[in-house]
């Protein structure tokens, strides 16, 4: 019986096999990771809704405020999907109101015969809800509260993107835990004065920022930044050291009020205002302390 010898190429082949195997394995693992990554899975989710409501039209062109429809967003955890009656204000068809002289004025004659609006009319008639499909859906073990964010000056656009440009609402952010924490740890870039939260296209230049900076900081009767008990003095996390100068000044505006500071003084000390500095200022003054405790979201 003749002895069997592996041919020479086997030596190279073995190395190739190991490397190839590792590459293929790595490739598959990467594919799997990428495939199940929240960004892949969640971003771009664009379900078809029963009524093709166009945010682009209503918000972008007609300039509706978000809170015209999502009117519980400032008081509640849910930014409620509006009751059909809200749609009916314009598209109701048969709903009539009398003006001061007693003359009947139809307020709701917009596209009253549109086929696309059939579900709205049906819902108004039968009092049965329209079944919308949730686009931004968090897992059941996560608690999220809209009012807590909106009232602190986190804009809708930070999480939902430019809704005013969307014909069909699409999920643009991953809504993953990492994404939440990124902002909770460094919220400055996303903070703006609370009255501007629904201004989705807000893109201030330096002058605008300066104006907002002076307008939005609360000043007491003496012209100093006001501090109340509900806005306790704020201790800066170490990460914000680059804004040290600003921070140092703010750190002095403690609750006891003996080292108070005016916005002008503050402005002079930091010079130019950018979004991050505005955010820091707002955060300081309002004592905004984004929680990173587990029980904040998992209860």
């Amino acid at each position: 019986m003749q002895e069997f010898h592996f041919p020479n190429w086997v030596n190279k082949f073995t190395i190739g096999l190991v490397i190839g195997g590792a590459l293929i394995g790595g490739y598959l693992a990467t594919c799997l990771f990428a495939a199940v990554h929240p960004t892949t899975v969640n971003v771009g989710y664009q379900p078809k809704q029963p009524v093709p409501f166009s945010h682009k039209l209503h918000v972008g062109q007609l300039k509706f405020d978000c809170r015209y429809c999502h009117n519980t967003v400032e008081q509640a955890g849910h930014a409620a999907i509006p009751a059909t009656a809200t749609c009916g204000n314009c598209h109701g068809g048969n709903r009539v109101k009398k003006d001061a002289s007693g003359k009947a004025v139809s307020l709701s004659n917009v596209h009253i015969n549109s086929e696309l609006l059939e579900p709205v009319r049906k819902s108004l008639e039968t009092m049965k809800p329209i079944h919308w499909i949730r686009v931004h859906n968090l897992p059941d073990f996560v608690y999220f509260n809209h009012s807590a964010h909106i009232n602190q000056g986190v804009s809708c656009v930070s999480c939902h993107g430019r809704i005013d440009k969307m014909e069909v609402v699409t999920r643009v952010k991953s809504l993953s835990m990492k994404w939440c924490l990124d902002c909770h740890r460094n919220p400055e870039k996303h903070l703006r004065p609370a009255h501007l939260v629904t201004k989705l296209d807000w893109n201030p230049d330096a002058d605008e920022l300066k104006k907002v900076f002076f307008e939005s900081l609360d000043v007491d009767k003496d012209g100093f930044l006001s501090q109340t008990e509900s806005r306790p003095g704020f201790v800066l996390p170490k990460k914000d050291m680059e804004l040290k100068k600003l921070d140092e000044r703010f750190a002095r505006t403690d609750r006891d009020g003996d080292q108070r500071i005016s916005p002008t003084e503050l402005f002079q000390s930091v010079g130019e205002i950018d979004r991050k500095r505005l955010g820091t200022a707002l955060r300081m003054q309002h004592g905004i302390r984004p929680q990173t405790n587990c029980s904040t979201c998992h209860r």
Binding site: T72, Q75, A76, G77, H78, A80, I81, P82, A83, T84, A85, S123, L124, T126, M127, K128, P129, I130, H131, W132, I133, R134
Partner: peptide
């Protein structure tokens, strides 16, 4: 799915 009221009762805030 989200099924909002056809007419939301007064003082009712969903989830509160």
């Amino acid at each position: 799915k989200i099924a909002p009221f056809a007419f939301r009762p007064k003082n009712r805030i969903p989830g509160v």
